[in-house]
Amino acid sequence: MSRRTLSDAEAQERASEQRNYLWGFALALILTLIPFGVAAFAEWRPLHLYLLIGGCALVQVVVHFRCFLHITLARNKREDLQLILFTVLILSIMVGGTLWILFNLYYRMMPDMLP
């Protein structure tokens, strides 16, 4: 069995899933080209550039989860979504807390060198 014929319903479902992947690819491509293009060719102020890069990255992560890993708001995906959100929570506490403590140390030990 190297090839089998799909029923109409299956073929339709397959086509819709394939569209899902294509959309994901196209969106991810655009969200990659924007920050690279702006960073390479435009003279933006660093803060604006940071915000653009960060924004595009976050949206692209959501696109990947939605289109490639099929994490949606549907009820049967709820558990996976909650696991991912919990991971994000723990990571942000760790990263945010570390930055907080380090900058606090920075401020107390070498206030003259703060940017």
Binding site: S2, R3, R4, E10, R14, E17, G24, F25, A28, F68
Partner: peptide, 29 residues
């Protein structure tokens, strides 16, 4: 970095296509 990003993004997409072929078992090749 841009080239590497493209390679990885396209590979993610092609793995998606493989997953589809796997799920519907319609085309082993």
């Amino acid at each position: 970095a841009f080239f590497e990003t493209m390679l990885l993004l396209v590979s993610s997409f092609t793995f998606g296509m493989a997953s589809l072929a796997l799920k519907y078992r319609d085309d082993r090749r």
